[in-house]
C-alpha cells in the first residue's frame, strides 16, 4: 500500500482483519455513525451542483479546502437519510485523508471503494461511492495547481 497515506493504510489493515462480514459491516456503520455533515461556515443550502457527486443516489456533496500548510480538509453532505454507505465512506475519507497533501489524495488507487466495501456492493452503490472518491481526487488535483 505504498501510495496510500498512513492513516488510510492503517484503516484498510484493520478492516482486512475482519474475516467475518458482519464485523466488517459493523465497523463501517460505526464510521457512518460518526459522520458529521458540512457546516454552514463552509457551505449553505442549496448546495451547488459543482459539489454534487455524480451517479450518487444518496445525494452526496463534497468540498475540499486547502489549509495554510498546504494540506487538505474534506467536508461532505449526504442528503438521503438512507445513504448509510455514503456516510460511512465520507467519515472514513475525512478521518484518513484530511491533513494530507493533494498529491497523496489524487494518486490513490482506483479500487479503494472495492477494498472498503467488498464484493457485496451493488452496481449502483459502487457507482455512487466511486463517484465520491473521484470527486475528492479531482478537487484535490485542482488545488495542487
Amino acid at each position: 500500500m505504498s501510495n496510500i497515506p498512513q492513516k488510510l493504510s492503517e484503516f484498510l489493515e484493520t478492516l482486512s482483519m475482519f474475516s467475518d462480514e458482519s464485523q466488517r459491516i459493523n465497523l463501517l456503520i460505526s464510521y457512518a455513525d460518526k459522520f458529521k455533515a458540512v457546516t454552514e461556515e463552509i457551505a449553505q443550502r442549496p448546495y451547488s451542483d459543482e459539489n454534487k457527486v455524480p451517479f450518487c443516489e444518496s445525494g452526496a456533496y463534497v468540498w475540499v479546502k486547502k489549509n495554510t500548510d498546504g494540506t487538505l480538509k474534506f467536508y461532505f453532505a449526504v442528503e438521503n437519510p438512507q445513504g448509510i454507505s455514503a456516510k460511512a465512506l465520507a467519515a472514513i475519507l475525512d478521518k484518513t485523508l484530511s491533513g494530507e497533501k493533494p498529491e497523496a489524495v489524487f494518486n490513490l488507487p482506483d479500487d479503494l471503494v472495492y477494498k472498503i466495501f467488498g464484493q457485496g456492493l451493488s452496481m449502483g452503490k459502487n457507482m455512487g461511492l466511486t463517484g465520491m472518491m473521484q470527486m475528492i481526487q479531482r478537487k484535490s488535483k485542482a488545488l495542487s495547481m
Binding site: 457512518a32 454507505s85 457485496g120 451493488s122
Partner: peptide
C-alpha cells in the same frame, strides 16, 4: 440494495435476506 442498511437499524424482529 445497500448492504449496510439492515445492520444500521431495522424493524424490531426483522431478519435480513441479502
Amino acid at each position: 440494495e445497500d448492504q449496510l442498511l439492515y445492520s444500521s437499524g431495522h424493524i424490531p424482529g426483522a431478519v435480513h435476506v441479502d
